[in-house]
């Protein structure tokens, strides 16, 4: 059987979703943002909600997310994506609204907005990409940086006595009554990426129920910031990040 016999429209099993634009993403080679963007776009495509979905882009590496999604996007001020998402969801309650933020945006400058949005139980989906570092500005220490982890501003490793402890904000949010569904996923293997897609699908479906915030943390890599090759960075993630940020559901709706 030749290659030409296999490449036919009826045999297609996977293609780049049309909910992503044709622009080449500016992310570094191997960055998890690309996979997470694609998973969100696939979920939007499968649910058939491209016309009434609104995305809120953050400040950070994914600041240009609106160039890649073929859906309506708004770029929020640093850390204010959940506040903007709240406003949009209240004005357009039938639209699907999601915020997409990194750890510097959601867990540092935007902690107040994050916690209060989750506490109010706004009916939105929040995607939190946690790579333990400020990637865009050159690899500085973030609140989620692991203890002992070397970054540009902690060159001898994070000393928790001086610099404080890593912030596990997802566990904090799981305790809030307004959070309906809280989960932590990863995308560095095919099985985990497929599982993450199911979780994000669930988070979007929950908006129909109007029960509160659906929060999905994705533990991701930053190979430029961590100064590792992409495959090595994924191995490092598995060995170190997952110890402090274990994968799994932190809060699931009752009866599920």
């Amino acid at each position: 059987m030749t290659r030409e016999d296999i490449i036919k429209p009826e045999n297609l099993v996977y293609r780049r979703t049309p909910v992503l634009t044709d622009n080449v993403m500016h992310y570094c080679p191997g960055c998890g943002h690309g996979v997470i963007h694609r998973i969100i776009a696939e979920v939007v495509e499968e649910m058939g909600i491209q016309e009434n979905t609104i995305a809120i882009a953050p400040v950070g590496c994914s600041v240009l997310a609106y160039n890649y999604f073929e859906i309506d996007c708004i770029e929020a001020a640093h850390g204010r994506a959940p506040a903007l998402a709240t406003a949009i969801k209240r004005l357009y309650p039938e639209h699907f609204v999601f915020s997409y933020q990194g750890d510097g945006d959601l867990a540092a400058i935007g902690t107040g907005e994050t916690i209060h949005t989750c506490n109010r139980g706004e009916n939105i989906t929040m995607i939190f990409v946690n790579n333990g570092i400020y990637g865009m500005t050159g690899g500085q220490m973030a609140p989620t940086t692991l203890s002992g982890m070397k970054t540009a501003t902690s060159p001898f490793g994070r000393d928790t006595e001086i610099m404080g402890n890593p912030l596990n904000i997802t566990e904090l949010i799981a305790k809030l009554p307004g959070a309906y569904y809280v989960t932590r996923q990863a995308v560095y293997t095919p099985a985990l990426a497929r599982k993450c897609k199911k979780a994000i699908r669930q988070a979007f479906e929950n908006q129909k129920l109007k029960k509160g915030v659906s929060f999905v943390e994705v533990v991701s890599n930053c190979n430029s910031g961590w100064k590792l090759a992409p495959v090595k960075a994924n191995e490092w993630l598995e060995e170190n990040m997952l110890k402090y940020y274990p994968l799994g559901d932190l809060k699931v709706p009752e009866g599920k």
Binding site: K8, Y14, Y27, V35, R38, T189, P190
Partner: peptide, 12 residues
């Protein structure tokens, strides 16, 4: 599924 840049189209 794990390609960050959507490079691949798969036929089977």
């Amino acid at each position: 599924v794990i390609c960050p840049d959507g490079v691949l189209t798969v036929y089977r």
